[in-house]
Design a protein around this nucleic acid. Structure first.
Lengths: 223, 223
DNA sequence: TGACACATACCAACCGGTCGGTATCTTTCT
DNA sequence: AGAAAGATACCGACCGGTTGGTATGTGTCA
């Protein structure tokens, strides 16, 4: 509430312009960041515009200057989430640079497993949470979440495709379908973790997923 | 909105009292039924008490006569959901009476697969939807959803246990863990279906699950 | 006659969104 | 160079409607 007051005079981009890689700390970016955090914690409908503004340290006027509506913010945040995932999951981690495709794929799953610790709201999926609430109420939000999920699946499918190309697969499994399955298991694991209030059950689930993918690519089985 | 008005004078239970198996058509039961349907459609926070009352054809006075709060209704509905699932999934369907444990387990998965058609809100999980929104905001709701999920998993684990007893399992897999995994895949499949607006992707996911369970119980593999 | 199962009317808080106004930065014209 | 004009980025009071919840009245049945 009073955090707004402390920020009315904020630093200009002129001084300390050395930060090139750091995320833009403008109001728009802060609003999106706050929305993602708050929605992951309490859901989209339960999060008010005022709450997002307070968390971002900006006023309501700023909110509606940058976004036409709460829905528009949700759509923009879903887009931002796609980029965050691209960076944090498909660019920065070490698994990306593993040479062998199967090792790389297993490295991806292992990496997702390693993310499952700490508070539940810190590892769960923003768009997965939001689409559950909005799929019937707002088609723009639904479509934006779908786009984010699809982008992840298609990105992952590249690595699965490479694995199939190198090792083959003794089953009628399409790379994209398997990518969606990997994501579905994670989404389901998040729900379990939310219900139990702990990431342990989610890890157990990803262990099953790991075993499934290992079995899929293990040679010497019939069919 | 005006649906309430049309239902103010409703039939008493005295006439046509022959129905023994039919669900109790009293206000409390109607409220729970309406809550489940509406929450599955638009989520818990986005569903107002007035909306539930209108859908149930009762007044707000009746609502707060039967339930102390919206939260209390949610807890009661989660309990009702457990019983609905017990009936519709673990009692009525034919798979329950298959003699061979492995065939029975696969019959269960096949049955869950066969449920994935029609409007998304008709096959998705009420407690899975609700726990996503309430896990941090209301511990009574979270606990009630967890109880429902746990009941399902424990019920399913009985059949998995029987399968392991009969056929063994060549992996370090606990029956209850596998039961939770089956449920997690379904929950994840629901999210995918909501994002895509179609059950097709959910069916694809359950096909992967089916393959995994088949592979787990296929003899002649190493380890 | 009194407990039960509602119905009706109402309330304060909160909701998403609007609006008139202001400070500052950028472009254009002379 | 410097004034004028316009665009951008807010600010925060305010609005009508909705929210979960309450208080009180009323008909019915044991």
């Amino acid at each position: 509430m009073n955090a707004t007051r402390n920020m009315t005079k904020r630093q200009k981009g002129t001084a300390a312009a050395g930060s090139v890689v750091a995320p833009a700390r403008n109001s728009r970016a802060k609003l999106i960041e706050a929305a993602i955090a708050t929605v992951r914690y309490k859901g989209f409908s339960a999060t008010s515009v005022d709450e997002i503004c307070a968390a971002a340290g900006v006023t309501k006027g700023a909110f509606f200057h940058h976004f036409a509506s709460k829905e528009a913010l949700a759509v923009a945040a879903a887009g931002a989430w796609t980029e965050i995932a691209e960076q944090r999951i498909f660019t920065v981690p070490d698994w990306v640079r593993i040479a062998d495709p199967l090792d790389r794929l297993m490295g991806h799953i292992e990496f997702r497993l390693s993310m499952l610790s700490g508070p539940v709201e810190d590892f769960t999926c923003f768009v997965g949470t939001m689409v559950q609430e909005a799929y019937n109420s707002s088609d723009p939000i639904r479509a934006a979440c779908d786009a984010s999920i699809t982008a992840y699946a298609e990105r992952l499918a590249e690595h699965i495709e490479a694995t199939i190309d190198t090792y083959g697969i003794g089953h009628d499994v399409a790379a994209l379908d398997l990518a969606y399955h990997i994501q579905a298991v994670l989404q389901g694991a998040f729900i379990m973790a939310k219900a139990k209030g702990s990431p342990e059950i989610a890890r157990e689930n990803v262990a099953h997923l790991k075993r499934y993918v290992e079995m899929l690519f293990k040679r010497g089985d019939q069919q």
